[in-house]
Amino acid sequence: MTDPNPNRPIPETAVEVSSIDFYYGKTKALDDITLDIPKNQITSLIGPSGCGKTTFIRCLNRMNDLIEGAQLTRGTIRISGVDIYDKRVDVIELRKKVGMVFQKSNPFPMSIYENIAYGLRMQSIRKKTIIDEAVERSLRNAALWNEVKDRLHSNALGLSGGQQQRLCIARALAIEPTIMLMDEPCSALDPIATARVEELLFNLKENYTIVIVTHSMQQAARLSDHTAFFYLGKLEEFGDTSKLFMNPGNPQTEAYISGRFG
């Protein structure tokens, strides 16, 4: 009973990362990272602070473009076969397909409805019926509908921390990306809110590829199908979660996950 589904098919790859180097100005943040993120599964990125996991995840939707002096100097990142750093790629279209949820929840200072409708309005979708349906669908998918259906037009900042984070997830889901990037989504949440978000992610993975950065070993072990361990900008180990946590190949990995680092 070790592998619940030993005959499951080998998953396709959602994101192919080949030998990338990433610099912030003169500082090297990522060193020769090669990784294939499988489709419709949860991949978690673990590692100590400053090891490059957030940098890596922000490369996948080019949010690092916002930072002065940040650049990918080598290698390619391909999504659906397309190199996302190609000059012809419209970064806005990329971000519609690769959604992101941040560590600190950042709902806009608008109503809950408007928050979710935001992404749709960005795409010039104006019809009220379409937006209404999308809002309900996203909130249901984010397991938030029952809690907020009576106050859709109240300010989003009146929600609790866990609800705000689920709202941000719903907001990202509303534009129907194929890949969801999550940067420590539960770090600011209490255990109950964390449990709800984890349940949500487990259910989402059927339809979305999820990449999650986490500091919690238990969360990575509980939730993810694959785990990548980053250290000092390098990818130390990447593999099946049960293998990595039960019997890691790299002694660094073992030291980190058993808390014997440093």
């Binding site: 009973m1 070790t2 072990a221 509980r222 049960s242």
Partner: peptide, 15 residues
Amino acid sequence: IEIDQEAIRFLGLRA
């Protein structure tokens, strides 16, 4: 054997 292996797996992955 299965119960034993499942126990180890659950202890390792689910804490």
